[in-house]
């Protein structure tokens, strides 16, 4: 559930991101685009991982699929925005079909199954050379505007997507859908028994976790102009998204936004300062997060962190 303060904070944040082109350089604008894009991914993941409690690692499959559907459509002369909508629809349908099969699994099996989906997508895209270009990747026609305008345009696109998914999160968390998903997360059998159509609810959550990720993937492809299977279906990205949500606070509406922003900023700092060690440092951030911020930044209690650092509190569960 989102409070009035949360809403105001989010609005301020949107304004800050949207005004970066006015006063900051290209690098900052690029970072703002990445933050908005990852916020879309994290907020989407929140539906299945946060509200419903299903550990999905399939996000990057939706992202990559969206990128490829958009790219292929654009290469065949479909106008850019139509290609994005097409990607959204295809990814949504794919997620709904996949969800009705995959969501019969629980816990570890669901996690593994969702990782396998990413791998299968990557492998199929890599080997379907005639359509996807295989390992060589695909070039997408670039916008013939000035680089600054292109950056502003894609910043706005990602921001709009972010606002849409945020609003959806806020809506679902107040709606009976969110209430039902919350029940499923706590006790799925009992949820079934109080009259929740658990299969349907889970499939809806899974589809919501995919829909705008597909759009974001297609928009990303149009922005960067080139995609390949390794980048589009990277296992690293698939773990990043849940980590962002955990970092901010899973199951809350503002958490994914905070998590995505802090993670992208941290990542940028590590990339520019510790090129050889950035992966290890991200790993350390994850380990730190699990031990010291199990509820995410939103639920942080600094006293507890201090106590744990001093070793006063025993087992973190």
């Amino acid at each position: 559930m989102i409070t009035r303060t949360g809403l105001i904070l989010f609005a301020i944040w949107v304004v800050i991101l949207a005004t970066t082109p006015l006063h900051a350089d290209n690098y900052i604008v690029r970072t703002a685009i990445m933050i908005s894009m990852y916020s879309v991914l994290a907020l989407s993941w929140n539906f299945i991982g946060g509200f419903t409690g299903y550990p999905s690692f399939a996000t990057v499959a939706f992202f990559g699929l969206g990128a490829y559907v958009g790219a292929i459509a654009q290469r065949n002369g479909v106008p850019m925005v139509v290609a994005w909508m097409l990607a959204t629809i295809v990814v949504g349908a794919f997620a709904a079909a996949l969800g009705s099969i995959l969501l019969r699994l629980k816990g570890h099996y669901f996690a593994i199954g969702s990782i396998a989906v990413v791998e299968v997508c990557r492998l199929v895209i890599s080997s379907w050379r005639s359509v996807t270009g295989g390992g060589d990747g695909l070039n997408i026609p670039l916008l013939r505007w000035s680089p600054d305008d292109v950056a502003i345009f894609f910043l706005m696109v990602m921001l709009v997507l972010m606002i849409i998914v945020f609003a959806l999160n806020a809506f679902v968390s107040r709606h009976r859908l969110g209430f039902g998903l919350h029940c499923i997360r706590q006790n799925e059998d009992a949820a079934d028994m109080v009259g929740i159509n658990t299969t349907l609810y889970k499939v809806i959550a899974f589809t919501l976790s995919a829909l705008f990720v597909g759009t974001a993937g297609a928009a990303y492809a149009s922005w960067v102009g080139y995609i390949d299977p390794t980048d589009s279906f990277s296992i690293l990205m698939t773990v990043k998204v849940p980590v962002m949500v955990l970092l901010g606070g899973a199951g809350t509406v503002l958490g994914p936004v905070i998590g995505a922003a802090s993670f992208v900023v941290l990542e940028e700092i590590f990339w520019s300062n510790f090129l050889d060690w950035n992966r290890a440092i991200l790993g350390m951030v994850i380990v730190f997060l699990i031990f010291f911020l199990p509820g995410g930044l939103l639920r942080v209690s600094f006293r507890k962190v201090r106590d744990r650092l001093k070793g006063r509190e025993g087992v973190a569960t």
Partner: peptide, 11 residues
């Protein structure tokens, strides 16, 4: 839950 342990070992 699995998400925590998997993420930790991934880190």
């Amino acid at each position: 839950p699995v998400l925590t342990t998997l993420t930790l070992t991934f880190g």
